[in-house]
Amino acid sequence: MTGEVLAFSLFSAMAVGGAGLALFHRSAIHSAFALLASFLGVAGLYLNLGADFLAVTQVLLYAGGILVLYLFGLMLVPPEGEAPRPGRRALALVLAAAPVAIFLIAFLARSSWGDPSRLPEPEGTVRGIGLALLTPDGWLVPFEYASILLLAALVGAVHLARRSAPKDDSP
């Protein structure tokens, strides 16, 4: 068992286990914290795939930003109300998730994607990503679109949050 396999097992167990815990845990806050394990596991998988910049971004943005935002949201609203009925959840799992899972895994099992005989050595990716994002023949335009998207989302979020604060009847 090489280190890579060990790391993969550990991180994928974290990712999938965290996601499963988030799905099945009855408490809203607990499932949000379980998501932390899932996000960190995915960050570990990124590391395993040689994407170090992405792994750190995952930790910074998901664990430090998005998850904090969700926890804040969970504290501002009341809990889910009555405890979710187990039957309902099982039904949802069977109807929504199981077919997708079966289809995906069967598809993957039958796929013909072979692994390359030799993987490129992982190396630092910061320079490559930076150059790709900021050169006009690279990804500069999508990068700027992304910033416009973020700005629009931010303005929209501020607008929604502001309108909800005072009860204001003006259209």
Binding site: V56, V59, G64, G65, V68, V126
Partner: peptide, 14 residues
């Protein structure tokens, strides 16, 4: 690390 300070910021946010 190549990512030194970026890594540190990410960890600090935990």
């Amino acid at each position: 690390l190549d990512l030194g300070i970026y890594f540190l910021l990410a960890i600090a946010s935990l």
